[in-house]
């Protein structure tokens, strides 16, 4: 499509989104395909929970994590790695994403490389006396535009996982994914540290003014292009609230990535602020994200 044609398509899509009544949800009737369901004769990976309660980057926080190791991991060859924010939702076999099932199927078919999944819940500050509600650190960790979450991964989580499995250390072998604030978090990590993660998967990402995330389209346009590959999933029924309009924000992100000729893909469905659409197209997104992944450079 020519630049004029793609610009016209954007304008029409913006007009469609802007004219939608507030709060309307679309059909949002997405269903899982076969790659999101257990298939016979597909080796099953191992999911192991662990906790991270001793963070120095986010001191005082506690969180649940999970590690997925595919059956094809041979113990010697460093595996690709993919990090998921709000990990509990992504690792759930009966949730909207079912990542372990999808990974099992795609890795078995060689539609993506042998990849370890690291699923991390946001931190909370527990009440000191063990009673009462803890304080959520999710927005602070996920929505803040800084390198803090990237340092958390680099200095704490990845080394912890590497005690158990060998991971690729090159950005081409690393991806990061999240939904809502987890989506902008994924982008922030890659934006701040493209040497650590080069592949981003965002589901209904919160590129709005929760904590200043609406600046990204402008930053993208005026920054030398970074070696990133970005998949954005959004829905016309997504949020329009005090922080911003999610469909417009994601459109703005896509337009900026398009302008700067990033390797990106933008899929706009009709869903709302949930994982139904993203989950239904997860296999397709992962195939696109991990396509042509080069082997690790020889040391």
């Amino acid at each position: 499509m020519t630049r004029v044609g793609s610009w016209l398509a954007f304008v029409l899509l913006v007009a469609a989104v802007a004219s939608s009544p507030l709060g309307v949800t679309g059909a949002d009737d997405y269903t899982f395909g076969p790659d999101s369901q257990r298939q016979p004769n597909v080796p099953k990976g191992q999911v192991t929970p662990f906790k991270w309660n001793t963070s120095k980057v986010f001191p005082g926080t506690e969180r649940d994590c999970w590690l997925y190791v595919p059956a094809q991991y041979d113990g010697q060859t460093p595996a690709c790695v993919m990090v998921f924010q709000d990990g509990g939702n992504y690792v759930n076999d009966t949730g909207p994403f079912r990542v372990p099932i999808v990974f099992d199927n795609l890795i078995h078919k060689k539609h993506m490389p042998v990849t370890v999944g690291i699923f991390i819940n946001p931190g909370t500050f527990p009440a000191a006396d063990g009673k009462g509600k803890g304080r959520s650190n999710r927005s602070f960790e996920y929505d803040t535009l800084s390198d803090q979450y990237a340092r958390f991964l680099e200095q704490e989580i990845l080394p912890e996982v590497e005690k158990k499995v060998k991971l690729r250390s090159d950005a081409a072998g690393r991806a990061i994914c999240g939904i809502s604030s987890g989506g902008i978090c994924a982008f922030t990590v890659a934006w701040e540290r493209p040497d650590l993660f080069s592949k981003v998967l965002s589901h209904v990402g919160s590129f709005t003014n929760i904590r200043g995330g609406d600046v990204y389209p402008g930053l993208i346009r005026k920054t030398e292009r970074k070696p990133l590959r970005i998949f954005l999933q959004e829905g016309t029924g997504d949020l329009d609230n005090l922080h911003g309009n999610w469909p417009l924000a994601n459109l703005s992100m896509a337009a900026a990535l398009n302008y700067m000729q990033y390797d990106y893909r933008f899929v706009m469905g009709d869903g709302g602020h949930n994982g139904k659409h993203g989950g239904a197209i997860l296999p397709e997104a992962l195939r696109w994200l991990w396509r042509d992944t080069p082997p690790p450079a020889a040391k």
Binding site: G23, S181, H273
Partner: peptide, 22 residues
């Protein structure tokens, strides 16, 4: 009512702790 339905829809269908109440 539409906004309430939207909030409820998100609450029950969304990714776990994906969004604190606005």
């Amino acid at each position: 009512m539409a906004r309430l339905l939207h909030i409820l829809t998100f609450t029950f269908l969304a990714a776990g702790p994906a969004l604190a109440q606005d």
